[in-house]
Amino acid sequence: MSLIFGLLDIANIAQPAFLIAGSYAAYVLNSAYGVDPIVVGVALTPLFYLIGAGVYRVYYATFERRGEESLRGLVFFFGLLFIIEVSLSMRFGVDYRMAQAAYVGKSIDLGGGVGVAYRYLVPCLVGLAMTLTLYVFLGRTFYGRAIMAVSQDQGALRLMGANPIHIKTIAFGIGIAAASLAGALLVTIAPVIPSTDRDYIGRMFAITVLGGMGSIGGTLVAAVILGVAETLMATFFGPSWSLAVSFGILLLALAVRPAGLFGR
């Protein structure tokens, strides 16, 4: 999300649908063949990369090239969100689905009665590794730097010898692949239904903006802040307050730092 919305300026609200699609892909292969859901998630990233690249090409050909990106583009992604969600509902029903892995149910004891379940620890570490990989990719490679530059001045990027459409296709593919892997992590941690994506639309935007558009490190920090705040609110005041907290923190933070926590 940070990549696509933060760096490309494309308001892809279908992003959480790809998250859930990743969850279901991991769930299906996990329950059918017993493959570890996270291994499935990693193995399927090339496929989701191609899907993401394809989606951007369609979006480019039908909307962006004609300069109709803002409002109609939003409708395009909204439609995509529903198509994915409804397809998943029709194929798998609306029951909660969850993946199984060898380490689920086990935990490390940290002493003093505090323990960390592997069910949380493993996805957390994989998520951190993915974030770090993206961070290094953006800062250290030619493609990464071009992705950071593309929304600032496409014409100037052409003068560097890079095709902006090609660069955006790569970025979109990576964004979707990352979402699908995150979905595989999610289905390992908690059960998922096709409409879970709706819970994440607002959060994803809030985190991206709070972290500072396109800053990978900022996105991670913002996600932790909002996650902890939501959990605290849910514990002490009831879960219905959770989303209000996300946006409350977002508004407060933006009043102080309009570019987001780590925005440039």
Partner: peptide
Amino acid sequence: IALVPEGRRLFPKLSVEENLLLGAYR
């Protein structure tokens, strides 16, 4: 063939070094 464009057309939100490295994209 390289162009120093009118109005400079730098990437304002990238660092000086990142701008230079993008120059070597080809």
